[in-house]
């Protein structure tokens, strides 16, 4: 897997991953614009796990100190930050 994966494919994987992690969310996927932090769908520990999953999808490490605030708000923003502006985090 790498950064060239199609947008829909990446978002679908992220959405399924987030739904799978959340204990209170009973569906196979979350909407791409759902505020996953605000709505407490995932916790800060799960964000660590998410960073590792994103590294896996991107095939390269991420330095959390360089992540912009708001990057984890929604599936759309995660995609935007890590797969469009992603080079900035390498």
């Amino acid at each position: 897997m790498n950064v060239y994966m199609k947008e829909q494919e990446i978002k679908t994987k992220l959405s399924a991953w987030v739904a799978g992690q959340s204990s209170g969310y009973h569906a196979d996927s979350v909407p791409f614009d759902l505020r996953i932090i605000e709505q407490r769908i995932i916790t800060s520990v799960q964000i660590m796990e998410l960073i590792l999953f994103l590294e896996h999808l991107r095939g390269e490490p991420i330095n959390p100190m360089q992540i912009k605030p708001g990057a984890f708000s929604t599936i759309n923003s995660i995609y935007q930050h890590f797969f469009i502006e992603g080079q900035a985090y390498a």
């Binding site: 800060s44 964000i47 660590m48 960073i51 590792l52 490490p61 991420i62 959390p64 100190m65 992540i67």
Partner: peptide, 8 residues
């Protein structure tokens, strides 16, 4: 190695 900790 960078840390993976990310504080909300």
């Amino acid at each position: 190695y960078p840390s993976k900790a990310y504080a909300l």
